[in-house]
């Protein structure tokens, strides 16, 4: 009962803006890529693109949970590094293909612990999440290097790389279907369902919107907040499995992904410091981000120009969202 009261403003709010501009952006960008490179219209073209974006999209969807609850998670990149370079490859030095089946659950377990610690530090030690997860990022990177000695100790077996690398061929209509794309659809749906179709999702929005009010309305603020960090860390592990599968073993896999995930959420219209955000729009944000890079690549713009464009889009997206909100009278 009480939870519904807390969630009611949220329901009416989501109806207002109409079509989220991020979808228009994605369509426009994909069209532009297609015009410049017709091969993109072939299944191998767009499937490769989706395969490439899967890790970031899943990661952003998880990061959104923390953002909607009003926090930040800067530790996702280092969670990927730790679980992949260390657990994934170092402990698999025996190259035993069967170990994948217990290694992935183990990695998820470590993700769970990382998320729990983040959540507990933020909730009970009252450390702002920016600092708590920054500290966690530095610590985890150090642990990863300490443990592995600075370089990965083994290879990732093919059974592990299956999720990020393998394509199912001879699929009717589309020809090839990368496993990573299936993962994207499955986890994207789960994340969408959790955020937009459950009571838990409504509580998440409520504590991000106004923690005091949420508490008064009976929302278990601490527990919900901790769970958001856990979701974020778990998706970081999943994204890591896909990314590691795609690229293979490397030293600092995942570094820089924390800011990209936040960027994707922001392009998708999520409001930093909480209360607003949509999983599909965030995934579209990730698609847009990757599409921008692909497009700039196609045009042949130099790396520095890409940085400038990324910066302008970031500021522009948020400024536009604020403007729209103001015009809508909120």
């Amino acid at each position: 009962m009480t939870e519904q009261t807390a969630a009611r403003p949220e329901v009416s709010r989501r109806r207002l803006p109409g079509v989220n501009p991020v979808y228009v952006l994605v369509v426009a960008l994909l069209l532009a890529i297609f015009i410049m490179n017709p091969a993109f219209g072939e299944p191998t073209g767009y499937m490769n693109f989706l395969k490439r974006v899967a890790a970031l999209a899943i990661l952003s969807g998880g990061a959104l949970y923390v953002i909607v609850s009003g926090g930040f998670d800067l530790s996702v990149g280092s969670t990927m590094t730790l679980t992949l370079t260390v657990i994934g490859s170092s402990m698999l030095a025996s190259n035993d293909p069967n170990s994948t089946y217990w290694i992935i659950p183990l990695m998820l377990g470590i993700g769970l612990v990382v998320g729990l610690i983040n959540g507990l530090v933020v909730s009970y030690l009252k450390v702002p999440s920016l600092i708590a997860t920054l500290g966690m990022m530095i610590t985890l990177n150090g642990v990863a290097f300490m443990w592995s000695g600075g370089a990965p100790r083994g290879y990732l077996p093919d059974t592990f790389r299956f999720f990020g690398r393998f394509n199912i061929s001879d699929v009717p209509l589309i020809g090839i279907l990368p496993v990573a794309v299936i993962c994207l659809v499955v986890f994207g749906t789960i994340l969408w369902w959790g955020m937009h179709r459950t009571n838990y999702g409504r509580m998440l929005h409520a504590i991000g919107d106004n923690p005091q009010a949420a508490r008064l309305a009976g929302v278990p603020v601490q527990r919900v907040r901790i769970s958001a960090f856990v979701v974020s860390a778990l998706t970081a592990v999943l994204a890591g499995v896909i990314l590691g599968g795609r690229g293979g073993v490397s030293v600092d896999i995942g570094s820089g992904y924390e800011l990209q995930a936040i960027t994707a959420a922001v392009i998708g219209g999520a409001q930093l410091l909480g209360g607003r955000g949509s999983v599909p729009a965030t995934i579209a944000g990730a698609l847009a981000l990757e599409a921008i890079f692909t497009l700039l690549n196609l045009i042949g713009l130099a790396q520095p120009v890409r940085l400038v464009v990324q910066g302008l889009i970031l500021i522009g997206a948020v400024a536009l969202a604020t403007y729209q909100r103001k015009r809508a009278g909120r």
């Binding site: 993109f40 073209g45 490439r52 795609r246 690229g247 896999i253 196609l298």
Partner: peptide, 23 residues
């Protein structure tokens, strides 16, 4: 064909080569 910077990132390297292969 081009000089591309990969930042030492495997995933990015793969994407760059894929894009060039498509063309």
């Amino acid at each position: 064909l081009g000089e591309e910077f990969t930042d030492g990132d495997n995933a990015k390297t793969k994407s760059i080569v894929e894009d060039y292969l498509q063309r």
